[in-house]
């Protein structure tokens, strides 16, 4: 029961915080326009060239990329870095809950606050491009949501593991910056994995990237899910979790910011 009460307290507080910044959230929802830019280029390319997807399939693919990205945004490394530099971590260490729950609370609450903007943008998309209209089945929807949840947890834990570097250096977010380049090009945001050359695709499928975007997206579009789609991200999640816990302990031991 204490757990539920705590979870409710965290969510209520952070949902209220998020509502203060509604206009900012609108801008964030607009800022992720990259999938729509890629969409235009790929629809045009598929019109004239021989690619594995038809123009309308590219349209749907990138729309769902946008959705999955909205569901799985993570920014914990910047928040954590800021909290370390400003010494805001100290009072949280005194609370009877692991500080990570503050960040989890913020991320979950933001999802709820962002949802209305996402719905508007999707409606707008189908108004402009009615040929792309499709209704996924229940199983496809559940599979996509489940894989998106896995993707989100994986991204969060990985980024939180990177954030631990803030105990040693002031620029933990630089590691995330490097990671984001891999994410941008190999996860399926700029091009679906279906158009990658076979050999490259096989290698990339062992990295965590495609499981963050491409795999959940294809699940909604009706692609079958294999055991591998769960096992590889699961393995990466385990690695990230162990690394994060170890770094957290070592980091706390040398943490010496204001008030600690």
């Amino acid at each position: 029961m204490t757990f539920l009460r705590r979870a409710r307290a965290f969510l209520e507080v952070y949902y209220a915080y998020m509502l203060v910044y509604r206009s900012e959230l609108l801008l964030w929802a607009l800022a992720m326009s990259l999938p729509f830019i890629s969409m235009g280029a790929w629809i045009k390319a598929a019109d004239t060239g021989a690619f594995p997807l038809a123009p309308v399939e590219f349209g749907r693919y990138f729309l769902v990329v946008y959705l999955v990205r909205q569901l799985t945004v993570v920014w914990v490394v910047w928040e954590f870095e800021y909290d370390i530099v400003q010494g805001r971590l100290s009072p949280r260490l005194l609370q009877p809950a692991d500080p990570v729950w503050h960040y989890v609370g913020g991320h979950v609450a933001e999802r709820a606050a962002r949802l209305p903007f996402t719905v508007v943008i999707v409606a707008f998309f189908f108004m402009l491009y009615p040929e792309a209209w499709f209704v996924p089945s229940w199983t496809e929807t559940v599979a996509c949501l489940a894989l998106s949840l896995l993707a989100w947890v994986l991204r969060f834990v990985l980024q939180y593991a990177f954030a631990m570097a803030a105990f040693w250096t002031e620029k933990a977010s630089s590691i995330e910056g490097l990671w984001q380049i891999g994410f941008l090009f190999l996860s399926g945001v700029v091009a679906p994995l279906a158009v990658f050359p076979e050999a490259v695709r096989e290698v990339v499928l062992y990295t965590p990237f495609p499981y963050l975007i491409d795999v959940p997206v294809r699940a909604l579009l009706g692609a079958p899910i294999t055991l591998r789609d769960v096992l590889i991200p699961g393995a990466w999640l385990l690695v990230a979790l162990v690394a994060q816990r170890l770094a957290w302990r070592a980091g706390l031991a040398r943490y010496s910011s204001m008030g600690a």
């Binding site: 060239g49 021989a50 690619f51 091009a191």
Partner: peptide, 8 residues
């Protein structure tokens, strides 16, 4: 380079 596959 992905755009320049199959002669496109």
């Amino acid at each position: 380079s992905l755009f320049f596959q199959n002669g496109h």
